[in-house]
Design a protein around this nucleic acid. Structure first.
Lengths: 227, 227
DNA sequence: CGGGGGCTTGAGGCCACTCAACGATAGTGG
DNA sequence: CCACTATCGTTGAGTGGCCTCAAGCCCCCG
């Protein structure tokens, strides 16, 4: 698979601004753009954390595995999202491109160097980390205490908000991905989507069944007004 | 409320050093010690985040609620742990003392002031936030993909590690708290503890059934070697 | 000593699971 | 271009793990 030697990437003149980590007093730090094909691993769990990433185009899943193959997806990363931000020496999850995905990446070390002399950069890192923490804490409530319909409804609303906000969503991920994100089986996800369609809450548009139209946001929200 | 305002640079029980947020160049920031009785709220969800806390003695739960009363405990905070660390304007969870609990607290604003001129302090905040994130990410896997026995075994090992490490644990929290932490019903928690006792993995010591002795760590670990 | 909260245990039920079959779609190579 | 295959999604049947409801015990505390 793709190895992150610097020669693998085509360096482009970019400022830290792109990753939301810039300040006036900073030297410019070089960013690299790289594209991963569908299902390709970006980094593995417990390997040295060399880079920090930002999604430019596409979608990424980060997950943990149990030894028997059970998988929990912690987050989907969509354009604009930063991932791979670590404080320790290694990544704590595996990251994979869900579809063809272009990322910006920056050597963690160079970020650390800049950060030492620039509190603004550390603060940006802190902000990004806190944002992750917030998302994950909400997800705890979903996984621990919501039933299947509530989970799926919450997922649809989250994706609509993050992908379009217009009620028209093209999901990059499979039913299995959704299931592993929501702590359900893929059959249950499929069944509940069909059920919501029958109830008039949504409709399938294309042939792939990944293009959705949210018809009745109120109905979906009803499952989430509970928090 | 006993107020301790430190007036010199000498490290003392109540210096910033205790909360891991200090540097040589810093002005001293005043800490306050406060004690909460059992079941008393320390801060509520969505109220302005004025303070950052560190547990000195006792135990704290932070949780989110659904409107119908379902509760998900995100974390138990034990002596040494920092909680209430926010980036936004308000707390994202409710915090309550589980038993009589003494905390150190510091005005968030004074921390921010110091942080502006001191990258070391921000970095400490970042480290503390990352630590929370790590814990919560592991908990996602537990909630989403582990079965009831695995959850309870993981809980016992976590508490043993954090409370003693010696195989002898006095739990500060009730069965209901444990259940709301693990995404189970309290009856299931009780049943599984009994089951593990019958299997010889642990034993109840006192009359309250909150003092546990872990007899067969291997057996408990077997449920967790799966990750 | 009476009351209440916490813990345990049993009985029964339901929600989401597994196993299975099938249709549709996209990708591949002849 | 088309058969072939792998992958994905849907749906049904049946099961089981964990839930709810309920009763009872013990301990603490007023």
């Amino acid at each position: 698979m793709s190895v992150h030697t610097t020669t693998d990437h085509t360096p482009r003149p970019n400022s830290l601004y792109d990753i939301g980590m810039t300040s006036d007093t900073n030297p410019i730090v070089s960013l690299v753009e790289f594209t991963y094909k569908k299902s390709v691993e970006i980094f593995g769990e417990n390997v040295p954390a060399e880079y920090v990433y930002q999604v430019k185009k596409g979608a990424v899943r980060t997950y943990k595995l149990l030894s028997d193959g059970r998988r929990q997806i912690a987050a989907f990363h969509l354009p604009g999202d930063i991932f791979g931000l670590e404080n320790g020496a290694t990544y704590r999850s595996t990251a994979e491109a869900i579809i063809e995905t272009t990322v910006l990446l920056i050597k963690r070390q160079s970020l650390e160097t800049v950060a030492e002399s620039d509190a603004v950069v550390i603060r940006s890192l802190l902000t990004a980390t806190t944002k992750s923490l917030q998302h994950v804490e909400n997800h705890l409530l979903l996984l621990g205490r919501k039933d299947a319909v509530e989970k799926v409804a919450a997922f649809l609303l989250e994706m609509d908000e993050r992908l379009s906000g217009a009620g028209s969503v093209t999901l990059p991920m499979s039913r299995r991905d959704i299931a592993d994100y929501l702590g359900l089986s893929l059959e249950t996800v499929s069944r509940l989507l069909s059920q919501l369609r029958r109830a008039g809450a949504l409709d399938f548009v294309g042939t792939t069944h990944r293009e959705l139209k949210l018809l009745d946001r109120k109905q979906l929200l009803a499952f989430n007004l509970r928090d």
